[in-house]
């Protein structure tokens, strides 16, 4: 019994922390995930992209909801500039029914998402990236090199009170060929929901 506990504890550690995830400078893996329109989407589909705003986010999490309109605004602002938003729901619907594929389709329609909202079916991609929460941003350059990891900005509750737009600053830095400071930030978020064995 104690051994089982220890093993489950260790498992939680390895899956729950970002030890296996990317750091700035790593090359991120491409993926092929199902979009809410039923089509499969990969980063390589965006032929003229100068970078990719990969955001692990979901329906149910209040922090994800607080950022929903800001994510829509990011696509409006940066999609044209060659930095498409690619949203990925990493949660297992068995653990969080609000994040089922059907509920994703519903939400994308309600809010009129103009970016892919992909389902990490089987939860294979988020652990490779090292996402631990929603929302969790990974900004990649055109070669899929990870340039920035973390928060969109410094105030989930109040968009009007934001002082540092970390993600937008990071995109500007890429556009201007400058160093990104900071290139990792933290934020409160909902843990990624994994079905318990």
């Amino acid at each position: 019994m104690q051994l089982t506990l220890l093993i489950s504890l260790l498992m939680t550690f390895f899956t729950g922390t970002s030890t296996g995830g990317y750091k700035p400078g790593d090359v991120a893996v491409d993926f092929k995930l199902k979009n809410v329109d039923g089509k499969m989407v990969s980063l390589s589909d965006f032929k003229s992209a100068k970078g990719y705003i990969v955001i692990f986010t979901c329906n149910h999490c209040p922090y994800a909801k607080m950022y929903e309109d800001r994510i829509i605004a990011l696509q409006d602002k940066y999609g044209k500039a060659g930095f498409p938003v690619i949203a990925i729901n990493p949660n297992d619907p068995a653990a969080e029914p609000d994040d089922s594929f059907d509920m994703m389709k519903k939400r994308a329609k309600e809010k009129g998402f103009k970016f892919p909202y992909l389902f990490d079916d089987g939860q294979k991609i988020f652990p490779v990236y090292g996402a631990t929460r929603t929302p969790h941003v990974f900004l990649l350059d055109k070669n899929r090199v990870v340039k920035y990891i973390g928060a969109i900005d410094d105030n989930p509750q109040d968009a009007a009170a934001v002082k540092s737009k970390y993600l937008e600053d990071a995109i500007s830095a890429i556009q201007q060929g400058k160093d990104i400071i900071p290139n990792v930030t933290k934020a409160l978020g909902c843990s990624i929901k994994v079905k318990k064995a």
Partner: peptide
């Protein structure tokens, strides 16, 4: 305090910010 980006590390550097 909404400035979590600034205080998460002060709770513990290992914390990514996910709850619980």
């Amino acid at each position: 305090d909404s400035r979590a980006t600034e205080w998460i590390d002060k709770v513990n550097p290992e914390w990514s910010g996910a709850i619980p």
